[in-house]
Write a protein that binds this DNA or RNA. Structure first.
Length: 214
DNA sequence: CGCCTTTGACCTGCGC
DNA sequence: GCGCAGGTCAAAGGCG
């Protein structure tokens, strides 16, 4: 709509139309879900189609961070950032933001459900976050992330964005840790642990909460 | 030919 | 107010 002042000045338009339509949503602090996983490929195959729209060298990390948008449907607000961990170049950190506004292929449902559920969990403010996740996401009881991951999710949040990190890199036990900032107080310093019988299917109902001082 | 990646420029937010 | 860092845009080129 209305970005017609883009004659030769490509950059003049950004903030105005952003104020007025869906882009405005991106200004709000949306919850993010990042996934750490060992992956040799430059990006994980999560079943969605992504289009790269930018790349940056982040300070403190020699590896470039790549920015992708979902192209399964025009106007889909979902974005992801892909970056290798500076400590371990084999670890790929993928951060998802937003939720899909269109039907997903079956291969993408598991991941999308996980990220959206985690986002719901952050937003819900419920102490029993897993309940919130399950209420909002019927797929959670039959997640099958084995396509992309090995086993162990660690969830953590930090910074001004509420962010959950699923750490699937090591760890024999499923560990979900929420180091809250910008979160409902009920989530602060929450540490969840659970069984790791998780390989082919992640059943988040198995995850238990445990208060954990930071 | 259409879609995707690359890349440089620009915008915005934040800290000092 | 200034500078920096992160994030986004869009033109150009490449590839299937």
């Amino acid at each position: 709509m209305d970005h017609v002042f883009s004659q030769s000045n490509k950059a003049i338009k950004t903030s105005h139309d952003a104020d007025q339509n869906s882009e405005a949503a991106t200004r709000i602090r949306k919850p993010r879900v990042s996934v750490r996983a060992r992956c040799e490929a430059p990006t994980m195959n999560d079943g969605c189609h992504w289009r790269k729209y930018g790349q940056k060298i982040a300070k403190g990390n020699p590896c470039p961070r790549a920015y992708y948008r979902c192209t399964l449907a025009p106007g889909c607000p979902v974005r992801k950032q892909v970056q290798r961990s500076p400590e371990d170049m084999t670890t790929l950190v993928t951060t998802y933001e937003g939720s899909h506004n269109h039907p997903l292929p079956s291969a993408a449902i598991a991941m999308a459900s996980t990220t959206e559920a985690a986002a719901s969990m952050l937003l819900s403010g419920s102490t029993s976050s897993m309940e919130a996740m399950n209420v909002n996401n019927p797929y959670l009881s039959r997640l099958s992330l084995e396509q992309c991951f090995a086993s162990n999710p660690t969830i953590s949040t930090a910074n001004s964005f509420p962010t959950i990190t699923l750490d699937l890199t090591t760890n024999p036990h499923l560990t979900i840790k929420i180091i809250a900032s910008n979160l409902p107080s009920s989530h602060s310093d929450t540490h969840m642990q659970g069984p790791t019988s998780f390989l082919p299917r992640i059943n988040l109902q198995n995850i238990h909460y445990q208060r954990h001082p930071v």
